[in-house]
Simulated assay, not measured.
Amino acid sequence: MQARQLPTPRGWAWLQEGFRLWWRNPALLSFLAFAYLLVLIIVSLFPFIGQPIASLLMPVLSLGVLNGCRAIDQGRKVGPDVLFSGFKSNVQSLVTVGGIYLVASLLVLVLTSLVDRGALLEAMTSGRMDEQTASSPNVLFSLLVALALSTPVMMAYWFAPLLAGWWGLTAPKAMFFSFHACLRNWRPFLAYALALMLFGALIPGLIVGVLGLISPTLATLVSVPLPLILIPVVFASFYCNARDVFDVPVNDVPKG
């Protein structure tokens, strides 16, 4: 296991390769992507304990989605139950990754309280933000601070589930090597982020907007299936950048 250092153009290719992977088995990948989101949403609805449990489960379910992508990529047949295959692979480390990510994310929100007196933290925890709060300069600045502080947290999490699940690393090691891999490939990841904004948001929004000027009904018909395609394609692109940065193992994931 060694993180490759990739050229910048590789970041542009990940979304396209994700679409190709999705096209090989759209039914399974679509199911995995939306089932992953649905499970986390349902779990998070439970009062008090829902959000923490969802955070702990997130790496386990993420590994299940990646296992499905890997099976499709390698031409193996798997069923929808692959979503829960992460529970068979180093669960302790995966849950610990989720716990560290949760604590780090909460710490970022707490630190933003120094900027906006807790407005962003209250909005995130309550799920509500009024118009006056959203337009406040302090809140806008705290959003920038949160983005800057959460970037290294996301870098440490990005590859951590597969490093813990496929190579059996402990949570601290998995998050360290994930951060190192992202830092080493910051240029292709920047290109990848731009590709996501361009092809995942700006161009689809422009197309729907133009169609809306021609026919609102046509715009609605186009806008409905777009998320059904884009969301699983983005999930598949996560696997594609992992495959590019690391050598994806062929054998079954380690047990633990």
Rank of each mutant, 00 (worst) to 15 (best):
P254W: 04
L163S: 14
V210G: 13
L61D: 00
F238W: 12
V82T: 10
V153W: 11
P80D: 04
W12I: 15
E131C: 02
P225G: 11
G75P: 06
V91D: 01
V245W: 01
S237L: 11
L211W: 08
A171T: 10
F159K: 10
L63S: 00
L169H: 06
L21C: 04
G79R: 10
F238C: 04
L63W: 12
G50I: 03
V145A: 08
N25G: 08
V78E: 04
L28E: 00
R128Y: 05
V253I: 11
P52M: 10
F177D: 14
P52R: 05
G165C: 07
Q51S: 08
G64L: 01
D252A: 15
L218V: 10
P80S: 07
I229T: 02
L202H: 10
A164F: 11
L121V: 04
L196W: 11
A236S: 06
F159Y: 14
L218P: 09
S113M: 07
A3S: 15
A242M: 07
G75F: 03
Q92S: 10
L163R: 15
V250C: 15
V210Y: 07
V43F: 06
N241L: 14
I229R: 06
V43Y: 02
K173C: 01
F238S: 10
P216C: 12
T217V: 11
W22L: 08
R187V: 04
G50Y: 02
F84P: 00
L114N: 11
V153P: 09
A193N: 07
P216A: 13
L230G: 06
A160F: 02
L109Y: 13
I41W: 03
F199R: 02
T96Y: 02
V108A: 05
W158R: 11
Q51Y: 14
M124A: 15
G98P: 06
L102K: 12
R70D: 03
V139R: 01
V103P: 06
N67V: 15
A119Q: 13
N90F: 03
